[in-house]
């Protein structure tokens, strides 16, 4: 099961700032459980942010990105009521998309 990505998008003077946090364990594959067994690698590999239908950021992650990946960036354009959506997939093929409204 995956949890929703938290997205906040606010527009100021024609520039939209996006803050997002994707819920994901981002296991490197090197950590050991309290029982001593290696925890299998499990991390996001691709993350894409769209403004309406336009790509505004495309990211590729390795396991060195922190748990619950957090990103802040801005793009020119955007208006209140328009949408920003975040999609990711991980190394196990799990995927998730979430959408927020620009404020």
């Amino acid at each position: 099961m995956t949890e929703p990505t938290r997205i906040r998008a606010t527009v100021t003077a024609g520039v939209t700032q996006v803050r997002l946090m994707a819920a994901h364990p981002m296991e490197t594959g090197r950590r050991r459980s309290p029982e001593g067994a290696l925890v299998a690698a499990h991390h996001i590999t691709d993350l894409t942010v769209l403004h309406e239908a336009r790509v505004v950021l495309q990211a590729r992650f390795g396991p060195s990105v922190s748990r619950d990946p957090y990103l802040v960036f801005s793009f020119v354009g955007g208006a209140p009521g328009e949408t920003v959506s975040v999609s990711w997939r991980d190394n196990r093929g799990e995927q998730r998309s979430d959408t927020a409204t620009i404020r």
């Binding site: 520039v15 981002m26 490197t28 336009r54 790509v55 505004v56 950021l57 495309q58 990211a59 590729r60 396991p63 060195s64 990105v65 922190s66 990946p69 957090y70 990103l71 802040v72 960036f73 801005s74 793009f75 020119v76 354009g77």
Partner: peptide, 16 residues
């Protein structure tokens, strides 16, 4: 990160 035209060249994230 790939930044299409219109995305500002400024990014914040958290790494291990």
């Amino acid at each position: 990160f790939a930044l299409p035209e219109g995305t500002l060249p400024q990014l914040q994230t958290r790494i291990k």
